[in-house]
Design a protein around this nucleic acid. Structure first.
Lengths: 108, 108
DNA sequence: TCAACACTGAAGCATTTACTTAACTATTGC
DNA sequence: GCAATAGTTAAGTAAATGCTTCAGTGTTGA
């Protein structure tokens, strides 16, 4: 579910925008309402809602509305999926370098 | 240098495109020329070069030209920087959850 | 020397993105 | 009830993105 390429696509796309990363950063310190998320951002509330929708569609953020306030929180599983994608590629590269080093050492 | 927000911006932007992630994936298995990178992709060589320029500007990929072939490789430091950004936010969230759990347990 | 090769760069174009404003809905507190 | 609050939705727009084609440049091997 989380490793499906389409979802990964949405996640990396979501993280590509600085405003959305700032929102994720804010949420990493605890849940927040839409207005709280908007407060440090130099844009209309409407724009923030649109960013939030992108984040929610990507699975990085989960929200629930109680009364008139929508409370947002991070979905750590999704963050972990993105992290994992990068990590695997980096490790593959580094393992390759290690093997290469071993090979060169042996052929001394 | 690597934690500067502008660079982080370029990296996440670069990773947002599926073709570019495919290129990074390919490079994680070892260096490749531009044509080798292009081979599995359903687009012109020119388009691949443009993607490659984005990857290089982001610092995720380093290239060097020898004769007429440009050889590309991953820059693991840059991958690590992106990984680190995500990891820090996720950990902040999870630590917060832990503290909350402790608090609830104590107030029993 | 010259044709094939491996790119490179510029121009153009369709689509997507990141906003804006404005009009609207649903809650809440008094 | 009614005004303020909190968010939503739609429409429009300017800029960015992801391609394309085409016309190059420099390199290599026969």
């Amino acid at each position: 579910m989380l490793h499906d390429p389409a979802q990964l696509d949405l996640m990396f796309q979501a993280l590509a925008d600085p405003a959305r990363r700032q929102m994720v950063d804010r949420l990493s310190r605890g849940p927040a309402s839409v207005s709280q998320l908007a407060e440090p951002l130099a844009m209309s509330l409407s724009a923030v809602v649109q960013h939030l929708n992108v984040l929610e569609a990507s699975g990085l953020v989960r929200t629930q509305k109680v009364g008139r306030v929508r409370t947002c929180q991070i979905e750590p599983k999704a963050l972990r999926a993105a992290e994992h994608w990068i990590n695997e590629r980096r490790l593959a590269w580094e393992r390759r370098l290690d093997r290469l080093g071993d090979f060169l050492a042996e052929s001394e």
